[in-house]
Every structure is written in C-alpha cells, then in structure tokens.
C-alpha cells in the first residue's frame, strides 16, 4: 500500500466514517456556520478523503477553523459525519512531533474577563495532542 492509501486508511479507521456513503448533496456545507472561514468545506473533506487527496487538507488552516459544532453530523441525510473526518485529519497533523497548535505559553495572552474557562479547556483538547 502506498503512502497515500495508508493515510486514507488511517483517517477512515480513526474517524470511523465511511466517506463512500456520501451522496454529494452538500447539506453539510449548507449548514456549516464556519463555512466562510474554511478553505476546504465539509463536503470537500468527505470527497477528498475518499479519493485519497488528503495532503492539501493537512496543509490547510481549515482543520482548525471547523468549530466542531457537529451541525453537519446532525443533518447529514446519509450519516456520513463530516466533522469526524475533519477531526481525524486534524489529529494527523497535531500528533506529529512538535505540531501542537497551541501551547501553555499561548494561554495568558488569551485570558481575559470575557473568556470562559471551558473555552480554553476545549481549545486545548482540540489543538493539542
């Protein structure tokens, strides 16, 4: 198995999602609140992962722009769960050595009166291994 296929297998195994179930209706991207922020949109994740075109996703900021709100998971008529695919790609990135998106040093700058602590906890969970 070549590297491309290995990566595809790994993403599918990690997410537990079968992108082949996608019927390309685009409801995920229609419902996505972070759509304008993302270079690649939820339906593209499903389609690009299925075709093994994963490198551009790994290199994209989109994996961090996804809010993990799971609206796409809730509304997908085929049960594809695009947010889980995005999560799996993000893990491929941050699990590399030194690839944490956020470190403890970044936290003080983010804390202010307004920021709920839960947000920092979620961010840590999402952006670091």
């Amino acid at each position: 198995m070549n590297k491309k296929d290995l990566l595809r297998e790994e993403i599918i195994r990690r997410s537990g999602v079968n992108p082949k179930k996608c019927m390309k209706c685009g409801k995920c991207s229609g419902t996505c609140p972070a759509y304008e922020e993302m270079e690649f949109h939820p339906h593209q994740f499903a389609s690009m992962i299925d075709s093994g075109d994963i490198e551009p996703l790994i290199a994209s900021e989109s994996v961090y722009k996804c809010l993990s709100c799971f609206a796409c998971v809730e509304r997908c008529p085929r049960g594809v769960e695009p947010a889980k695919l995005i999560e799996a790609v993000r893990l491929s990135v941050i699990r590399e050595k030194g690839a944490n998106r956020m470190t403890a040093n970044d936290v003080p700058a983010m804390v202010d009166e307004e920021t709920p602590q839960q947000l920092l906890v979620s961010a840590f969970r999402k952006y670091t291994k």
Partner: peptide, 19 residues
C-alpha cells in the same frame, strides 16, 4: 446543485442558508 442546510424565520423573511 446543493442542499439547504437550515432555514431560520426572521421577521417577515425566511433566512435560507444553503450550499
């Protein structure tokens, strides 16, 4: 070609968000 993700009634209009 695309699907409507959500519809939100707002005043007199229906805000349709779709891809």
């Amino acid at each position: 070609k695309g699907m409507v993700g959500k519809i939100v009634p707002e005043g007199e209009v229906l805000k349709v968000q779709a891809s």
